[in-house]
Amino acid sequence: MDILVTLGRTLGFSMAAGVNLYATVGILGLAARYGWVSLPEQFKVFDHDIVIYSSLALFVIEFVADKIPWVDTLWDGVHTAIRPLGGALIAVSTLGEANPMMQGIVALLGGGLAASSHLTKAGARVTVNASPEPFSNWILSLSEDAFVLVLAGLALKYPILALGVVAVAFVVCLVVLGMVVGTLKRLFAQRRRALLGDQPA
């Protein structure tokens, strides 16, 4: 049971980090500082002023940037390496004492989950930004914020349930990524045909 609790927290926070790294780190820091739930000693690594305040400040910046079409895509592009790396570091930090092999496996799992949720988020944003109206972008962004808050809350209070959510969300990410890739291929093909059609014979 203890291993499931550890994995639920570790992988839950890693997947959340792929969507919004700064909100995830901020929640971890606040939870460790104010004792929202009883957490293992290793969570104290997030209980530092510089970690908490910098993550919350960056979360505010991301919250605004994430609501502006194409600015969000640029922001996601910058974070393509940062979020998976952050997910891996969170996974190792929240794991606690373990042998190097286990730390390596958990780092790969955490980084992989963060990468899957990040790529799903970034790919969906590119597709949505191709539409002329901004409302779908705002709805998607707020939904992502809610997902991070809910998953982080579950990872803190109900880690075994969080582990189940992570498993389902990972499958959903794979399906959505496949749909996004197909949609982007069609958009690029249409754009290419339009450009070629505009060229003089």
Rank of each mutant, 00 (worst) to 15 (best):
D2N: 08
I3P: 00
I3F: 13
L4C: 04
V5Y: 13
G8P: 04
G8E: 07
G8F: 02
R9C: 04
R9D: 01
R9P: 00
R9W: 00
T10K: 10
L11F: 06
L11M: 09
F13R: 08
A16H: 09
G18R: 15
V19F: 07
N20W: 14
Y22W: 14
V25M: 00
I27H: 02
A32W: 07
R33F: 02
R33Y: 03
R33W: 05
V37D: 01
V37C: 10
S38L: 11
L39I: 04
Q42H: 10
Q42D: 12
F43Y: 15
K44E: 09
K44M: 09
H48Q: 12
I50T: 12
I52N: 04
S55Y: 01
L56I: 15
L56W: 15
L58W: 12
F59C: 00
F59R: 01
V60T: 12
V60G: 08
E62A: 09
E62M: 08
F63C: 02
F63A: 12
V64I: 15
V64H: 06
A65N: 09
I68G: 00
P69R: 15
P69V: 09
P69D: 06
V71N: 04
L74F: 11
L74I: 13
W75S: 04
W75N: 05
G77K: 03
G77E: 05
V78I: 15
V78T: 04
H79E: 06
T80K: 02
R83W: 09
P84M: 11
A88P: 03
L89Y: 05
L89K: 06
I90A: 12
V92I: 13
G96L: 05
A98Y: 11
P100R: 01
M101A: 10
M102L: 14
Q103D: 01
G104L: 05
V106C: 04
V106M: 14
A107Y: 11
A107N: 11
L108Y: 13
L109Y: 12
G110N: 09
A115Y: 13
T120M: 15
T120V: 12
T120W: 07
T120E: 08
K121C: 06
K121F: 07
G123A: 05
A124G: 00
R125S: 09
T127N: 05
A130D: 11
A130S: 09
P132L: 03
P132T: 05
P132Q: 03
E133F: 01
S136N: 11
N137M: 11
W138D: 01
W138G: 00
I139M: 14
I139R: 12
I139Y: 08
I139K: 12
S143H: 05
E144S: 03
A146I: 10
F147H: 03
F147S: 08
G153M: 13
G153L: 12
G153I: 11
L154Q: 00
A155S: 15
A155Y: 10
L156K: 08
L156A: 05
Y158I: 07
P159H: 09
P159T: 01
L161K: 03
A162G: 03
A162D: 07
V165G: 03
A167Q: 06
A167P: 12
V168F: 10
V168Y: 09
F170E: 13
F170R: 06
C173T: 06
V175A: 15
L177C: 04
M179K: 07
T183W: 08
L184Y: 05
R186N: 04
R186G: 00
F188S: 10
Q190G: 11
Q190D: 15
R192D: 10
A194M: 10
A194Y: 07
L195T: 07
P200R: 13
